[in-house]
Write a protein that binds this DNA or RNA. Structure first.
Lengths: 226, 226
DNA sequence: GGAAAAGCAAGAGCGGTGCTCTCTTTTTCG
DNA sequence: CGAAAAAGAGAGCACCGCTCTTGCTTTTCC
C-alpha cells in the first residue's frame, strides 16, 4: 500500500476506484465481453481516451476486476469460516458462502471461474488471490485431522508427488491422499455452483439449493471431516 | 431431416455447413467472444451481409455451434460407452471421453460449460442435446443397480421430490437418492474438467491427468458402482 | 518564485465490429 | 415466359478498442 502524498495522487486513486466501480456495475448488467471502456467513460462523464491513463487496456481493467473479485470472494469465505466451529459446520459455511457470493455476482463469478475471457490470459498476479478459497478448504481439512479414511485404493505415484509438493509449498500438514481429497471437493464445490449459475440444473435440480446442501454434506463425509 | 430437392436448397445446406465449419475454425483460434461474422464471411469470400441470409444474428450462429458441440460431445460419450463393460469401466470411459473431447476443443467446451456467452441466453433447443451426457451417466448407474449404499443421511424432501420428478420424466429407474448421486458425480466430472481447462489446477495438480483419474475412480465408488 | 518536467483531459482518427437497407442478379415455379 | 422468391453485394449507421496530438494543470526542482 503506497502512501498517497499529493493531491494528484489522491485524485488518481479516487478516479481509479470510480472507474472500477462503474465497470463492475456494467459488468453486472451486460457481462464481461460486452463491458465497454467507452461506456464506462461515458457514464463517468469523461473522454474515453482519458480512461487509458488509468488502465492501459480493456484487459488490464478486467484483470483489476478479477483480482478484486478474488479478494472479495476470499473475504467472504474467510469471514464465513469460524475456526472454532465443528469441521462439518466450517465446511458447510464455506460452501454456502461461496454459493451466496456467486449468486449475488454471477458475472463476476463467471469472470473468475467461467471461460477465460476471450483473447485474455490470466496474468500471474491473479494467481495469489485466486488460491484463498482452496487454501481455506485445506485449512479446514488440516484442522480436522485425523480425517476419516477415504475410499480404499492406492494413490498414483505421480499424483502423490504433486500433492506432496503442494503441501510442502503451502506449509500444510496434509498427506498426499488428503490433499487430493481437498482438491476434489474443492473442484466439486465449484462444479456445483457453476452448474447452478450457468443453468445446467434447469429442469432437474431446480432450484438447486437442496441438491447443493445435500452434495456439500456428502462431500464433508467424503473429505473425512468428523 | 427435410429432403433437399432443388439445387438452391442444396447450395443453401452446403453453404450453411461451410459457414459453421469456418466459424468453428475461428472459434478454436480466437474464442467465442472474438468470433466475428465479418471474418467468417471474409474467409468464405462473401459479403458480410450475405451471411445474414443464413444466420439472422451472431448469436444464432453461436447457438448453432452450441447444439453441434453438444451433439459432438454426446456422440463421443456414447461411442466411448460399452454397455457390456463393467460399470466402473463404463464410468471411467465416459469420464475420459468427456475430458478428451474437452481438451481437444477447449473453446467449444467453454461455449457449452463456461460462462454463458455475454448477452446471450441459452435458447430451449439447446436443452435436449445438452442432456445426453447426464443421461448416459444415469444409464450407467441404472444398469449397475443395485448400487452400493451411499453415505448415510436422509434426503431433503424437496430434493427427493425433484429427483423423483426427474426419474419420472426421463423414465429412469433410479431412487431419488440415487438420482441425486448421479447429478453430484456429473457436476463433479465437469467441475474437474473445467478447472483443468481454465487453469485452476495450474501449480497444484499440474498436469491434471493423475488427479482426474483418481477423482473419477473415487466418484465411481461414491456412486456405488460395483 | 519561476521554469522545466511530468501528468492529465479532450478530441480526432484508424480499423474493426454487428446489423440494416437498398439494389441487382439468380433461381424457382405456376 | 414471366412473376415471385431467394440470394448476393455494397453502402451506411452506430458502436468498439486503441493511438496520437494538442492544450492545460499540477508537481518538481533550481
Amino acid at each position: 500500500m503506497t502512501a498517497i502524498r499529493t493531491a494528484r495522487e489522491r485524485a488518481r486513486a479516487e478516479l481509479t476506484r470510480e472507474i472500477k466501480e462503474e465497470a463492475r456495475r456494467q459488468l453486472a448488467e451486460v457481462g464481461s465481453a460486452q463491458l465497454s471502456l467507452r461506456a464506462v467513460a461515458r457514464a463517468l462523464g469523461m473522454a474515453s481516451s482519458a480512461v487509458y491513463r488509468y488502465f492501459p487496456s480493456r484487459d488490464e481493467l478486467l484483470t483489476a476486476l478479477i483480482t478484486d473479485a478474488y479478494d472479495s470472494l476470499g473475504d467472504a469465505v474467510e469471514a464465513a469460516d469460524d475456526p472454532a466451529a465443528a469441521p462439518r459446520e466450517r465446511w458447510s459455511s464455506l460452501c454456502a458462502a461461496v454459493r451466496s457470493w456467486a449468486i449475488e455476482r454471477p458475472h463476476e463469478y463467471a469472470l473468475l471461474y467461467g471461460s477465460p475471457v476471450p483473447g485474455y490470459h490470466a496474468p500471474p498476479q491473479t494467481v495469489a488471490p485466486g488460491t484463498r478459497v482452496v487454501l481455506r478448504c485445506a485449512l479446514i481439512a488440516q484442522d480436522a485431522r485425523p480425517l476419516r479414511p477415504a475410499f480404499p485404493g492406492p494413490l498414483d505415484p505421480a499424483l502423490s508427488a504433486q500433492m506432496a509438493a503442494v503441501a510442502a509449498a503451502t506449509g500444510l500438514e496434509l498427506a498426499p491422499e488428503e490433499a487430493a481429497r481437498v482438491l476434489i471437493v474443492w473442484s466439486q464445490l465449484f462444479g456445483l455452483v457453476g452448474f447452478e449459475l450457468f443453468g445446467q440444473f434447469t429442469g432437474s435440480a431446480d432450484p438447486a439449493g437442496p441438491l447443493f446442501r445435500h452434495a456439500t454434506d456428502q462431500m464433508a463425509v467424503y473429505l473425512g471431516l468428523p
